[in-house]
Design a protein around this nucleic acid. Structure first.
Length: 555
RNA sequence: GCCCCUGUAGCUCAGCGGAUAGAGCAACUGCCUUCUAAGCAGUCGGCCAGGCGUUCGAAUCGCCUCAGGGGCGCCA
């Protein structure tokens, strides 16, 4: 990455200055190098001398004047200057810059990848909504954050696995089956009440009718407990199908759907309980079994097994993460959770320590809730009351690409409003289309060139000296930095901003630079620009794909 | 009461220690006989919630206040 190269260069120069006594000895801090935001300040800039002033006990301008002459000569820099009050501004060599087009083209789809993860095994677990109702917009946010992050990490050199944790055990699932039983019985003409705290949504009526249509009345002629068990499995498969379809609608494919129930059936939970007992991390109190970080009771203790004998969700989580880290050997695990689970995070890290695992290997991304609005008015969501706008409805209304872009473009920790009417209204004036349009335009250029049988050979890239050409290449060089930034901070929203920026550079270039020319005198530049545009297409497609969006060839 | 997240342009949000704070939408001006005008160029719009601190330098870090959201279940 060019920024890192420049930072290394500066570091060398500082060290050299220290060695020859021009600067006093001090530990050199990390060297910041940024892309210049303003014209006339070069391409890259570093404020390092401002930072060194106190360490070197010298004015920033003087430090800069010492360092700059000591910078090794490199092919990628054409000019370096010092600017008040001590910035070092660096100009990239135009020939080097245009030569990057070939590097991008040669790298192809791998361009932008970064060797950060060193093929470490990382699991991203996301959505994992209770299979007791359809997905809503919040799950949508979870989905795009998780999926895009998985893509980012793959591009950053991790060996990534995507997983959905199916909460098919526990109280909520029990209520779900009870509700389904009631709706099923009702569908067959028997009056049966939905439990008080059951699921009131209309979708449960449909599930009941569907179960009745597909399985007849056989569950009414068996003991209730058996019927509940049978209907539980049927309801679960209906809901998982629905969730899987929604995910696929957004282009999300899981490597594994992990059953919570399996942790109890295969003995994992029992084994982990033994470990916790041996490690003195459990305590019996009030007829329940509690997790306690140090073995003695305090008010932050958490129930593992309830006094009625049933394990709680935390019990499953411990066993589940034991399975992830110890059994399956993931180096890192990333869980994506809504803000309503935020209080659970400290316990998870305490659990990691109790299992003897490094808590840093578990990252939990907490995203703030999405407020769904309809022409400015808040739409409250609750699976329980059934007042729900499903993710599916939103996807069908607004389109998967737009939903993905919108939900992805904001940082996880910022709350966001999703106005259905606005999203639909804007869907023609959307950044989504702006970015995809850039890609489609490029494809159109390339199609034209093919029709005219131009651009089969490569051009002379040295001709790419127009400011817009250079600016476009500069933007393309940022991709690896963005991937690294997003991977390091587990913050895929940076991709959205980058995609917008890159598309903008392309559109400006498009206005100023004609690519396919029929004038014989333009043949050389046409070939070079076709290379440029092909590189831009690859970069644009790469970002779009990492974000999980399509890169249309025409619009 | 305690804990977490957030307060940046009319709206939705980027920026999160560096030089004149950005984008989209909204409003207004221009630009299609040439590769898609779902585009481009420009104008308008900001005491970066408020206060105090740290720093050569703060939208960015710390503390306090105010405002919004979330949490503080033997639910997940």
């Amino acid at each position: 990455m060019i920024r890192d190269d420049v930072a290394r260069l500066l570091q060398k120069a500082i060290r050299k200055a220290q060695k020859n006594g021009a600067l006093r000895e001090f530990v050199i801090p990390a060297i910041p190098v940024e892309w210049s935001k303003q014209d006339g300040r070069g391409d890259l800039a570093s404020p390092i001398c401002l930072q060194l002033a106190s360490l070197a006990r010298m004015a920033p301008m003087r430090i800069a004047d010492i360092i700059v002459p000591l910078l090794p000569r490199v092919d990628y820099l054409s000019r370096i200057e010092v600017a008040h009050p001590g910035y070092i501004n660096l100009h990239l060599d135009p020939q080097w810059l245009s030569g990057q087009v070939k590097i991008i083209l040669d790298a192809g789809d791998a361009y932008g990848n970064v060797p950060l993860g060193k093929q470490q095994k990382v699991q991203v677990e996301f959505i994992s909504a209770n299979p007791t109702g359809p997905l809503h917009i919040g799950s949508g946010r979870n989905a795009v954050i998780g999926d895009a992050l998985a893509n980012v990490l793959a591009a950053a050199g991790y060996d990534v696995q995507r997983e959905y944790y199916v909460n098919d055990a526990g109280t909520q699932m029990g209520l779900f089956s009870e509700t389904l039983y009631a709706r099923y019985a009702q569908a067959l003409g028997r009056s049966e009440a939905v439990p008080e705290d059951g699921y009131q949504g209309a979708y449960m009526l449909e599930l009941g009718q569907r179960a009745a249509a597909e399985h007849g009345d056989r569950f009414l002629t068996m003991p209730r407990a058996d019927a509940l068990k049978g209907l539980n499995d049927i309801g679960l498969s209906y809901m998982l199908d629905s969730i899987r379809r929604d995910a696929e609608f957004m282009g999300i494919h899981y490597d594994r759907w992990f059953s919570e129930r399996s942790l109890y059936e295969d003995g994992t939970f029992g084994y982990v309980m033994t470990l916790l007992r041996e490690g003195r991390h459990v305590l019996e109190k009030d007829g329940a079994v509690w997790f306690t970080a140090g073995g003695t009771s305090n008010e932050k203790d958490e129930v593992i097994i309830r006094s009625n004998g049933a394990p709680g969700y935390f019990a499953s989580d411990i066993a589940y993460h034991y399975d992830k880290f110890v059994r399956r050997g993931f180096d890192r695990v990333i869980d994506v959770w809504g803000a309503d689970h935020q209080g659970h995070v400290p316990r998870m890290h305490a659990m990691m320590k109790a299992l003897g695992l490094d808590a840093h290997r578990l990252s939990i991304i907490i995203y703030q809730l999405v407020t769904l609005k309809r022409s400015g008015e808040v739409v409250r969501l609750s699976k329980r009351t059934g007042d729900i706008v499903t993710l599916r409805e939103v996807l069908e209304d607004v389109g998967a690409d737009a939903v993905r872009y919108f939900l992805l473009s904001r940082a996880a920790e910022s709350q966001m409003d999703f106005d259905l009417d606005l999203a639909k209204e804007q869907s023609n004036e959307n950044p989504v289309y702006y970015i995809q349009y850039a890609h489609a335009r490029i494809c159109s250029i390339i199609r034209l060139a093919q029709e005219r049988e131009q651009g089969e050979s490569h051009g002379n890239l040295a001709l790419l000296t127009h400011p817009m050409e250079q600016a476009l290449i500069r933007s393309m060089l940022v991709l690896p930095e963005v991937i690294e930034l997003a991977a390091l901070n587990l913050a895929p929203h940076h991709l959205a901003a980058y995609a917008q920026e890159l598309a903008s550079q392309f559109h400006s270039f498009y206005r100023d630079c004609r690519v396919v020319s029929s004038d014989a005198a333009d043949q050389e530049i046409t070939l070079a620009r076709l290379d440029l545009v092909r590189a831009a297409r690859a970069v644009l497609a790469k970002v779009l794909h990492i974000m999980g969006m399509s890169a249309p060839e025409q619009m």
